[in-house]
Design a binder for these strands. Structure first.
Lengths: 349, 349
DNA sequence: GCGCCTAACTAAATCGATTCAGACAGCGAG
DNA sequence: CTCGCTGTCTGAATCGATTTAGTTAGGCGC
């Protein structure tokens, strides 16, 4: 009968009158002992309620834990409810699962902005996000594989999405119908908090945010090609990609007098675009007649609704798969660039 | 300078000419040594690039890893993209974070339906889901705290939502306006696969699915009170709570001839209700005039849209918080029952 | 000056496995 | 008969920490 305390491999070995090496081999390297002995060991293990080698001890001895950590720049609360991050995670989980690894979730927004010590247990790290604090990055064990997603870590593998052409494509599509007045809603463009109207020059200068910057570049290239003066396109910034934070900014935009209110809004994320759509619908604006809206990311929520959101799809699941395969060493640790796909919905036909 | 291999506590101790005990104490129990020595140790550690005690070794020695595992009945791919599961996870993560623990994600749908060995590293387990395979449950180390969410594990703590009154409340609300014809769309009611029309008796008999069963009971009690014959209410079943799986069943319902098509659909989840809403809108049906729709769960997607979904909100985040506090031993390991809140939106005013 | 207490520090056992370097037996080849 | 090989199995070192019991030195009261 299983005693209160968990039985150990050594005790099991003594019970059987064999060495610990044989018991260990019975579980890990069947070819190293006779079939008969192996069966005897496994049977006795079952009888005594021994569930196999202890994970903690094994990971100490072998140096491997079969655990991969994902370090998310945002808080877990945010990330888990963000569709793009969730898709990324499911891509990662899919590959890890298939290779017997499990997923440790780490938040870059811990109380003290340092990694919890338990993090160092992981065999490898996938870092997702815009600007994880350098302190955090320094905490990563440098001898372990690391993969950066959507940004770069000096000298490490990374997976990116080709944002500039994506932005260019969707802006080109939107500008096929010349807008009376266009507008851009940015996401976390500036380091310092700023929720609302923002100066375009200022926006381009504060280049710390690579992704938004690349998307802006794509928009501007399209403006150029279509003869639209960038200076005539007002820009707003949103601090956090959530409905609640978006709402006041968007309300303010929709409150503008008719002459100033844009009839085309290029949004940096689907979350923003969907919020625009919701608030516009509640006001009785006709989409797309009164207001055309484009998003970015191609999340499910935007496609499984009516009207469907016009957006550029990035395959976040695939991004996750690649990151996971890279961290497991199944794929060369290089820099990968994924392409995107224009999805024309009804919000900007 | 940091060598290629990570330096160990023992080496650090030798460098300093002190015992390993003192070094360990410098990191873990500052009161056990003089301030001067502690500073000397920490300074040398920094100089040599020693990042603190190794997590694997520490967890072996102390028996604790500061890791809590969440075992999800569904695949991680599904769970991460399901709003209810995501909210639960963020509640869990919030509490774990605050107490210096991290989150290990385990899928109940592993290839071989067994727990990966690495799982046993966790200090405690939160099990979420309807019917995790008994084999999996047996794999959980029985001496570690376990908390069940939305179902029961013999003799373990659990957190539940009070589904029957919730269902009763929303059905009562919906029936205030007598429907010409009502219908119910169930979720994973039967053990065996069945996507489509289902017999009500059969539904009530196959009681293996506690949550759906409780909700059905609530609906039927409301039917009773309102003098609606349960036999007159057709029922459909959906296998998986995703847009793609819902779609064909719902299309079939909407395809029914006018006389048979329900003008009130009580759905077992917001995901289902939102799919109904989308498909109905695409057909040009007027909501709620031609079709009234209710959901269940109160996910953000249903509220941050227009029209807002009428539903019952369960506080999944709080459910997660309680589960996490319980597994950490901050809360008594009992059975908790959470109440719900009726949200009246525009899909069924 | 003596005894006692406390603060500061250390030696060594221990957590539970993995794995390398043999030991030993049996067998076929020469 | 002996040699070497192969197939099994074992002894013991090791992974990197934590922690208990104990030593030493200094301070204080009397």
């Amino acid at each position: 009968m299983p005693s209160s305390r968990r039985i150990t491999l050594k005790e099991l070995a003594r019970h059987l009158g064999v060495s610990t090496a044989s018991v260990s081999n019975a579980f890990n390297r069947p070819d190293q002992l006779s079939h008969a002995l192996r069966e005897r060991i496994l049977a006795e293990a079952r009888r005594l309620g021994y569930r196999g080698p202890d994970a903690k001890a094994r990971s100490l001895r072998t140096g491997r834990s079969q655990i991969v950590a994902v370090l998310l720049a945002e808080s877990l609360t945010y990330s888990l409810n963000d569709a793009v991050a969730s898709e990324l995670l499911s891509g990662i989980a899919e590959v890890l699962d298939a290779h017997g690894h499990t997923l440790l979730l780490l938040s870059g927004r811990q109380a003290n902005d340092r990694m919890p010590d338990s993090a160092s247990i992981a065999d490898g790290f996938i870092v997702y996000g815009l600007m994880p604090s350098p302190a955090l990055l320094g905490d990563l064990p440098s001898q372990r594989p690391q993969v950066a997603v959507d940004f770069d870590i000096e000298g490490r593998a990374s997976v990116h999405v080709d944002n500039e052409p994506a932005a260019h494509a969707i802006a080109r599509h939107a500008l096929k119908t010349p807008p009376r007045r266009a507008g851009i809603i940015n996401l976390r463009l500036t380091e310092r908090a700023c929720n609302g109207r923002i100066d375009a020059d200022q926006a381009l200068l504060s280049a710390h945010q690579t992704i938004t910057r690349a998307r802006l570049d794509g928009f501007y290239r399209a403006f150029d090609e279509c003869g639209l003066d960038p200076a005539s396109v007002p820009m707003w910034n949103i601090e956090e990609n959530t409905f609640d934070v978006c709402t006041p900014v968007i309300e303010a935009i929709l409150d503008l007098p008719d002459a100033e209110r844009p009839d085309l809004l290029l949004c940096m994320s689907d979350r923003i675009a969907l919020t625009v759509l919701t608030l516009a619908e509640r006001r009785g604006l006709r989409i797309p007649e009164d207001l055309r809206i484009t998003g970015f990311d191609g999340i499910a929520e935007g496609q499984y609704r009516s009207p469907r959101l016009t957006t550029v799809r990035q395959d976040s699941v695939e991004k996750g798969r690649i990151a996971a395969r890279t961290v497991l060493g199944l794929e060369a640790a290089t820099s990968r660039l994924l392409t995107t796909e224009l999805l024309v919905g009804e919000t900007c036909p």
